[in-house]
Design a protein around this nucleic acid. Structure first.
Lengths: 205, 205, 205, 205
DNA sequence: TATGAATGAGTGTTCATTCAT
DNA sequence: TATGAATGAACACTCATTCAT
């Protein structure tokens, strides 16, 4: 009697209940984050979703459309996450720590710069615009939190937009691995603390 | 009498004198920096060099080889540039300003993170290793300068590796353009000053 | 107050009242005449009708069926038009002029030869047969008129079938445009007259 | 012992000696004439040539390019054939008979109208222009012969361009097959004679 | 040292068609 | 009567790579 064949590799998710379009978007987002726009083929997306390529095209007219949608949704999700964490009334530094930790814990390295670059060579102007707008909104919530903290005197007066970008760029340090695959700090906690400390100093505290 | 016809677009460089292999490497570097690994085809490289694809393959066994070589050379060049600038005995902050300005003035955005990511999905382990080593060497010269400054008391004691990565990551802020194509600061000088100030504070000064 | 937004391009017809099947057939005929069998997709037809592709398939089992039906209907319509015009008791040449003018005034170039060729490579034998029969009936009414005229002595004795085909083939001259987009004759009236004159001579008059 | 395997269907031509590009062009011409632009795939061409699709693309950048080249070459060939036949100093009617017979004997039906229509929806403007120019040149040689004959008084004065188009369009009658696959005339000789007679009358003789 | 020719394996995209509802 | 979802098979086109010369 033949037992069930266990397929190799990560078992295809069940995606239970979720409407196909959502499944596609989620899977695509994951793949694009993992490997970048060019490397992921529509077939890859389809296979990972357990549907055919034609089905993917039923929901997204082009690969660029799918990518744009995936990236925009992702950035909106991050924006919301930033917003939720920064909206509490704990001291700003605690909130930054909390967000940084959450971000660094996420396995995928969200290399927004890199995505914007791929976008620049592969998307239509309109799509690029959509991505930029989502990106900007992401930075805006950070800026707002910084502006508020500056007004409250919690942080020295300064350039909030610079502050927002500095924070995000410093977080990318967490993705670094040296030739021996080692990150700069052995634990995420220490990484978080050191980066946020550096940042906090940078703001002029 | 018909004058010389001026072809459209960027005129194909003459590449005079330089040995073919060097021409190929230089051209490839430029193209990879501009558009990324995946987007540049071996044909693109060949055409831009004024040779045939087969010639490119005569010098580089695979595209991945060419990319690895190009990236490694580039990082060694940057390392040298950092080294040269940081080796002078001006105050550290002045040296940082000088390097930052030089870097921000270069038109191409040298998105090392992005290149490492493309490398991860497309190169052999050995090639990846080569790139990582070149990357590490780049950071090392920065670390050394920081360590020296810390020992001299020019800068508070701290984590030099973090310092090195923080500097490089903050420089990426210069590449940002918002939805209206505007950078954060109107001039490179102001950008440089503000970023280095932020960084300087971050170091604990 | 915002007025109704006028969509771009040819306004989607309302197709009011007409039963869906008729709408589909009419729209399909128009599209096939305009662009040919291969180039028109079932989606094109559906969109232009304001229904879904599945609806088109509800009424026509295959694209080839739809095409066959469209072409047959069209040829029957032409046959009727020929019949109506040729049935009057004006002199034959006047009737020919009238029909030629009506035909040349229709914007679409009804390239029956071309349609028969597309049919040959894409339709089932049965469908091809249907089209040929409709085509033949079209020529027959012309033949009948010619035969009658020959019997009446209005035209020299000759080969009526040849006469019919010659007339139709000469009419295609009207579709010709040279490299500068110019037709052979500047006005439809002159075109008509010259073609019919040539034809009339050809018949032996 | 296994004997040579006889492949099914028409044996792949040997194309001996001919350079690949010529083979491709010849095969493509044949296929396009047989089935039309849309129906023939680049794979079809490649397979029939015994090469891979990539090889076809090595010589022709796009399918439209290949089609354009094929059609232009074909029309130039026809032009030459017309020229050669019409250049002799036999009476015009004899020359017309000779050309008509040669044309009607060729198995493929050269439906220039149909090709121009496919071209209109599928080629770039430049390509269309090339085709139109070749088409025009084809008609021109006919026109020249007619003009000369009119000047010599061999044929009544008339509109030579109309005469050229009328001749070509009347020749298409030879392609007609009725629902029972029968042509209008049982033999090519009779077909030729009758068509040329009709034409000769049409010219006003 | 350099190249022209050739290819295998994709890649994004389209489309006629089916089917459950 | 009408449709939304899904698909298989194709299609135009690309590209890294090889090889004989």
């Amino acid at each position: 009697m033949q037992r069930e064949i266990r397929p190799l590799g990560r078992p295809r998710q069940d995606h239970q209940n979720k409407p196909t379009k959502t499944v596609i978007l989620d899977v695509a987002t994951q793949l694009f984050l993992d490997k970048g726009y060019q490397v992921v083929s529509m077939d890859d997306v389809a296979k990972e979703c357990g549907v055919t390529k034609a089905t993917v095209y039923y929901y997204y007219k082009t690969k660029a459309d799918l990518f744009t949608d995936a990236m925009v949704q992702m950035m909106l999700r991050i924006k919301k996450r930033i917003f939720d964490i920064l909206s509490t009334d704990k001291p700003l530094k605690d909130r930054l720590l909390e967000f940084a930790k959450a971000h660094l814990e996420a396995t995928v390295d969200i290399d927004i710069n890199g995505f914007m670059k791929e976008a620049k060579t592969s998307l239509s102007n309109e799509q690029l615009q959509q991505m930029k707008e989502a990106e900007d909104k992401m930075y805006e919530v950070l800026e707002l939190a910084l502006t508020a903290a500056m007004e409250k005197g919690e942080v020295p007066q300064g350039h909030p937009q610079l502050g927002a970008h500095a924070f995000v760029s410093l977080l990318t340090i967490g993705n670094y691995r040296d030739a021996g695959q080692k990150p700069i700090f052995p634990s995420i906690d220490e990484m978080t603390e050191q980066i946020v400390d550096f940042y906090w100093n940078g703001l002029g505290n």
